[in-house]
Amino acid sequence: MSIDQHDDMTVQGASLRDLPKISLHDHLDGALRLSTILDLAADAGVDVPATDAPGLRRWFAERSRSGSLVEYLTAFTLTTAVMQTEEALTRIAREYVLDLAEDGVIHGEVRWAPEQHVRGGLTPEQAVAAVGRGIAEGEDEAEDTGYSIRVTQILSAMRQDDRSLQIARLAVANRERGVVGFDIAGPEDGHPASAHRAAFDYLAAEFLPVTVHAGEAAGPASIRSALIDGRALRLGHGVRIAEDLQLVGREGDEVQVQFGDLARWVRDREIPLELSPTSNLQTGAIAQWGDEFADHPFDLLHQLGFSVTVNTDNRTVSGTTLTRELGLLVDAFDYDLDDLEEFQFNAASAAFLPVEEREELVEMIADGFRR
């Protein structure tokens, strides 16, 4: 089935695109419009690997199919190069919101790393304000065209650098201006959450929610550090929690599984997994289980009662949308609307919002799935 067919897919008569969705794990610098990259590159004098959108799409596809997170991340050298001015950040954030609305998203949390957008002379504070303006403009423009969407920010620190405490303070300082959480991103293997303990101690004292990239390029030890050192309320990807599960047998169609202590804790505490199936395949995060979409342990985790959520990670780099991710899951695991609704309920419950607003999202999802 082609990408276009997944984007237009229906399940039990319902259009996947029209269903209300929650996006918890989506990087701003991985979600630029191709035309915008070309425009901004021309203005900034940035060399591009292709001179038109189809060529640029092919270039991103080559980076994303590497099977390595480190190689996958090389694509961001281009995107961040054109995101070094207030005007560029505001435009990209505005378009980001509109693209989410077009995909049926009603609430999104966009994560990005301010420290990567200061090479042109911006301060981190100016970068955060520029993104905030773009989000507000996008929300207003979406509302004018009949879409209702809210987007908040998660500020990421690069785990290979030493600015995490600075970014943590920046996140707390902007919590009344749309910043709802903190994250560490970048090359996971060799850069555990424990290296950023000072930042996490500060965030815990300030009661700012944390999600940590863990269980993508490294295994259970990384997840353990995210939970213990990072006090993570959600796991960014977290797919390799499946390494702490041992298959011991089958009874009919049911798999018998022995839980490790870590997996049982994550399941029993309902710690949300921000799974991004296409990206997890592309970066090699699921390589030990196979190299096809249907090899992703998403369904195993779902059937065992983990709080699984569906995300895109990087819509442009991975060439996907949230609608497409749902369509691919339906194809791979024969999910129905009840399954897809449960994934959205999980995401709504996991959003970094007050409980009253999370309950409103749950109601909006229930109404949207029953039209």
Results as ranks from 00 to 15, higher is better:
56 L>V: 05
57 R>G: 15
57 R>A: 15
57 R>I: 13
58 R>E: 14
59 W>K: 08
60 F>Q: 00
61 A>E: 11
62 E>I: 12
63 R>P: 02
64 S>T: 07
65 R>G: 14
65 R>T: 10
65 R>A: 14
66 S>T: 04
68 S>M: 12
69 L>F: 10
70 V>K: 15
72 Y>F: 13
73 L>A: 10
73 L>G: 08
73 L>K: 08
76 F>L: 08
76 F>T: 10
77 T>K: 15
78 L>Q: 07
79 T>D: 08
80 T>C: 13
82 V>W: 03
84 Q>P: 04
85 T>C: 08
86 E>V: 05
86 E>L: 08
86 E>M: 10
88 A>L: 03
93 A>C: 03
94 R>S: 07
95 E>N: 08
95 E>G: 09
95 E>I: 06
97 V>M: 05
97 V>K: 06
98 L>R: 07
98 L>C: 07
101 A>S: 07
102 E>H: 12
102 E>K: 14
103 D>P: 02
104 G>V: 05
105 V>N: 00
105 V>E: 04
107 H>T: 10
109 E>A: 01
109 E>C: 00
110 V>K: 04
112 W>Q: 01
114 P>A: 01
114 P>I: 02
117 H>A: 06
117 H>L: 00
117 H>C: 05
119 R>E: 11
119 R>M: 12
120 G>T: 01
122 L>N: 01
122 L>Y: 07
125 E>G: 13
126 Q>F: 10
128 V>N: 03
128 V>G: 03
128 V>Y: 01
131 V>I: 07
131 V>K: 06
132 G>K: 12
134 G>V: 09
136 A>R: 13
137 E>M: 14
139 E>F: 02
139 E>R: 02
140 D>V: 13
142 A>P: 01
145 T>K: 15
146 G>W: 02
146 G>T: 06
150 R>I: 11
151 V>P: 01
151 V>F: 04
152 T>L: 11
153 Q>D: 01
154 I>P: 02
154 I>L: 05
155 L>G: 04
155 L>Y: 00
156 S>M: 05
157 A>G: 10
157 A>Y: 02
160 Q>M: 15
160 Q>P: 11
161 D>G: 13
162 D>L: 14
164 S>E: 12
164 S>Q: 11
165 L>A: 08
165 L>R: 04
167 I>C: 00
168 A>W: 02
169 R>M: 05
169 R>N: 01
169 R>A: 09
170 L>R: 04
170 L>K: 04
171 A>I: 07
171 A>V: 07
172 V>I: 10
173 A>E: 13
175 R>T: 07
175 R>A: 10
176 E>M: 13
177 R>V: 09
183 D>F: 02
183 D>T: 06
184 I>P: 02
185 A>I: 00
186 G>E: 00
187 P>T: 12
188 E>S: 05
188 E>V: 04
190 G>C: 06
191 H>K: 12
191 H>D: 13
192 P>S: 07
194 S>A: 14
195 A>D: 13
195 A>H: 15
197 R>Q: 09
